[in-house]
Design a protein around this nucleic acid. Sequence first.
DNA 1: TAGTGGTCTAGACCACGAC
DNA 2: TCGTGGTCTAGACCACTAA
Lengths: 249, 249
Amino acid sequence: MLKQSMPSDERLPAYLRLRDELAARIAAGEWGPDRALPSENALARDHRLSVGTVRKAVQQLVDEGLLERRQGSGTYLRKPAFDATLFRFFQMQGRFQMQGPGEDARSIPKSQLITRVRMTAPEPVAAILGTADTIRIERVRSLSGRPILAEEIYIRADRFEGLESLPAGELGPLLYPVYYDRFGVFVARAIDDVSFGQADATTATRLGIAEGAPVACIERTAFTIDGTAIEWRIARGDALNFRYRSRIG
Amino acid sequence: MLKQSMPSDERLPAYLRLRDELAARIAAGEWGPDRALPSENALARDHRLSVGTVRKAVQQLVDEGLLERRQGSGTYLRKPAFDATLFRFFQMQGRFQMQGPGEDARSIPKSQLITRVRMTAPEPVAAILGTADTIRIERVRSLSGRPILAEEIYIRADRFEGLESLPAGELGPLLYPVYYDRFGVFVARAIDDVSFGQADATTATRLGIAEGAPVACIERTAFTIDGTAIEWRIARGDALNFRYRSRIG
DNA sequence: TAGTGGTCTAGACCACGAC
DNA sequence: TCGTGGTCTAGACCACTAA
């Protein structure tokens, strides 16, 4: 067992020390998805704490989005699976009406991979990620066959060793499930910056618009639960068919 | 005391019933800002609950952003006051460097009132607010003397009776504190929609840009804690000097 | 010093899920 | 039926704030 490895204990409350220990063991992969953690009673017994204290520790991790309680069954690792979580980081939507059958503006866009290379990141990106050793992914996302977003994505090579040579079939339309399932990296939060610009030649070609046409840019930095920036991406789309929704509070 | 006024009780857990009761009494204005609520011990005694149960009810309201605990002092109404809260709903910032002394991109823009009238809202706005009886405010917000945003704001007249004839001096650069201090309306959350368009004649004049120039539009709907939409606004700014930041997760 | 919220205990019973 | 998490109790001691 890893204990005392991190200086997590400095006369912290018991429930926080337990939270830190559980978080470390989760990060170490001790319990895979769909595998329940020890019951609250067991944790209380093993740590010589009362159930109430254990509950408070577990509740913290639930609030942080790492765990999920299922009454009568157990406490599980929360898998960023195919429901609302998928959309947590996909708030952009085109101004489209229903197009194909069962496909509306909230559908997940299809994704076409263009390049994947391990490379030295440009300076500003390296500064954000804390390393210049990155993998760059370029792709185009389409809805109903029309390209709507050209993306350029940089991820830390040390956290995603080998992603650049993963079979293309394993990279679905969404990257964050891949990060989690294949590399154990859980994206906990992100910051988006929306701005306005003009299409360069590459972007214009990929989006099928004129060079110099107005484009919307979404720059995103994604973080793990411990605050490490693991991805930076810029997505560009036709400004006239662009809509970005943000919920505050 | 208002009890049973809302059908809040349907064999709900005790802590949720207490939460609902406290939320109702807060909404009714029973405790002003800077006035502490009864202590947890007092609430427990009066409701014949244990302190732990009271704590859980209070914690819910803290999590919802309504209350604020101060150890050793008491539990207080969280006043949307002059710190981070002010910026909660002002995430837009120009691409400006420091201009005046002590004024940076995160300063609160100055606000110039243009019109205030009680009027029938256009249909889409009326649909969102649930009534066509509204007050419309038009204003321009400037940073370092330069206009950056032209705003058009609709609020429910029934919730803000008399705002249109309030002395202009009472409307500071920020409206939400006025909503709260003068009308007891607390904005708990909002949804922003960002898109891009072209400046019409009015907007162009107010922003000092050319008609037809690209503009960024932020449409916002603001809600109270109980989910009532009480404000809809559209803000327009020069697209080239625009940046919208959003934090997710 | 008195009162507040913060932490923690050692139980209890209930609702639910899996077997 | 049995084990799980969900709720709740009636205390305890601590850390902090304010008078």
